[in-house]
């Protein structure tokens, strides 16, 4: 089974071999409310761990989405352009943002495991 890791900024990354799929967590989509627009990186661009890679917007807020790990963007979720609501409906599935080819799998060690993220979120409310 693919492993999933989390950031403190509420991104998730699911690892399949050397490719990571990135999205925002259910907690994040709830905080933002109805998502109206998602700006995605271009395929082929390089992202750096912790740097801004995408933007997600609700009516009253815009939030940066930071890359959980470094690498080359190999795919983006084109469906979000037409249906940004997918992020609300299925944040950790059909609402994924982009996929990267991991430059340094070692970076993942700094991220939270599912149980740790659950505790982290519980501590915020």
């Amino acid at each position: 089974m693919a492993q999933v890791r989390y950031t403190q900024e509420h991104e998730w990354i699911r690892i399949d071999a050397d490719v990571g799929t990135v999205g925002i967590t259910d907690f994040a989509q709830q905080q933002l409310g109805d998502i109206v627009f998602v700006e995605l990186p271009t395929v082929g661009s390089q992202v750096r761990a912790g740097a801004e890679a995408a933007v997600v917007e609700s009516v009253k807020a815009a939030s940066e989405v930071y890359a959980p790990a470094s690498g080359e963007v190999v795919a983006v979720n084109e469906a979000l352009a037409e249906e940004p609501a997918k992020v609300n409906a299925d944040a950790t599935g059909g609402g994924w943002f982009f996929k990267i080819r991991l430059a340094d799998p070692g970076e993942l060690e700094a991220l939270m495991e599912p149980a740790a993220y659950k505790d982290y979120v519980a501590g915020l409310s």
Binding site: F37, E57, S58, V59, K60, A61, A62
Partner: peptide, 12 residues
């Protein structure tokens, strides 16, 4: 499309 504007986006 107010997220383009200063009262939401501030320096961005």
């Amino acid at each position: 499309l107010s997220t383009r504007e200063q009262h939401i986006r501030r320096e961005k």
